[in-house]
Design a protein around this nucleic acid. Structure first.
Lengths: 227, 227
DNA sequence: GCGCAGTTGACAACCCGTTAACAGGTCGTT
DNA sequence: AACGACCTGTTAACGGGTTGTCAACTGCGC
């Protein structure tokens, strides 16, 4: 869940300062000194956001932006001493997402990093969970069995979600009751039994011997994807 | 294909200047003088990008950002005379995408607008979606059934857009209400039911048994292109 | 006024959550 | 080994909430 940042700057001082600050905030940081290095690292490490200085020797900052934009939409934040409109327009139109003028405050850079990251995070929704008999897609709220869709009611979904999010782990009854029905239903185990039964009717290949939604008597229930 | 920009500023001079310049560039422009007006226009007109001044009388700029972020991811660019890091961090963390300090150059603002718009466009330019019975072209805002065009009202379109953009995924009622009618309609499910019915009347081959716009009772609705 | 779009209220049909009752199984005790 | 307490799985039925639909109403532009 940590985000990877690629920082490109030829000034050792800035590279070090930014690197230290970002690492202290929990980011994974790649440092590059030249444009060539930056393009190479961008391809190999797939950063979640790129911070690039415009005034690089050799391959310039704009070329780095264009090089990355050729194959990736990763957010790019430009750092630069140049403060003219023409520079900003050129960098932004080359594909940069933001432009910060040096000298800059670390807090501002961090806030702009967060803003850039915020835009890409929601795209990351996890894949569906597959078992030998059915598939559960939590994001789409969809369960498929033998190619056919299985309908789950809202309560059934909540129960499945809690169990699947804790897959492999035993979930105590009181936790299931709490998370699905709320704090005041802590002892209403009848309801829980009923809904576990419904899930098994809809999903288990052999209802009499559950393989995926198993009972740990006296403790709780467990979902296992693998057989 | 023209983009709609909502400009919020209490200074008449700036509103006018920005408005004229944007219109000259082919944007559709809404102008708002206060935060209240801005929130209202944001809901009713659904801008593709918002430019907001921080120093508004009454509801402040940050509240406008938060108000919009409650239900929309539309890019927000802040304009402000305040140049301190704390202001920038506050605005960006409230959900703004960019922060430009006054006085600003029109070319820079335009470049930042283009950068903001560039990020949202890729969602829109997909090919048309085909089902066995009709075709939906989101970019052209056109639905065809048996070779004939089907006319949809503006509200019907918004509903179709949300469902089709999330095709295959279940969309909860409150999300549909929020994205189509705005944040204050969260419980007005009657309206939603009515419009789903209208879509089915216009598009479903068998109204009594919907194949494409399906209901998940208690959860929401889903659009599926394949059978 | 007329047509169109959007909104609202009412109601029957249906779906879902809840509850009760009971059968089967396990486990500890005697 | 017999018994009972306890937990679990299952069935059935009830009541309330949700949905689909019809109809009427409002507001707006021509």
């Amino acid at each position: 869940m940590t985000s990877r940042v690629l920082v490109v700057d030829d000034e050792t001082q800035i590279r070090r300062t930014v690197g230290i600050n970002l690492r202290a905030r929990g980011f994974d940081v790649d440092l590059a000194e030249t444009g060539e290095e930056a393009l190479d690292l961008a391809v190999r490490h797939r950063p979640d956001v790129v911070v690039v200085d415009l005034g690089l020797p050799g391959i310039g900052g704009v070329e780095v932006i264009e090089g990355i934009r050729g194959w990736s939409r990763v957010p790019i934040i430009v750092l630069s001493v140049r403060d003219t409109e023409a520079d900003k327009v050129a960098a932004l139109d080359a594909g940069a997402d933001d432009y910060v003028t040096k000298p800059f405050g670390m807090d501002e850079l961090l806030a702009r990093l967060r803003a850039a990251l915020r835009r890409v995070i929601p795209v990351a929704d996890e894949a569906a969970i597959e078992t030998g008999d059915f598939t559960i897609d939590l994001a789409a709220k969809r369960v498929t069995r033998n190619g056919e869709e299985v309908r789950l009611t809202p309560t059934e979904w909540q129960l499945v979600e809690v169990l699947v999010r804790n897959r492999g782990k035993l979930v105590p009854q009181h936790q299931l009751l709490q998370e699905v029905w709320g704090p005041e239903y802590q002892d209403e185990t009848g309801n829980l039994r009923e809904y576990i039964a419904r899930l098994r009717r809809k999903l288990e290949p052999e209802q009499s011997r559950p393989r995926y939604f198993t009972t740990e008597a006296g403790l709780g229930y467990r979902f296992d994807a693998a057989e």
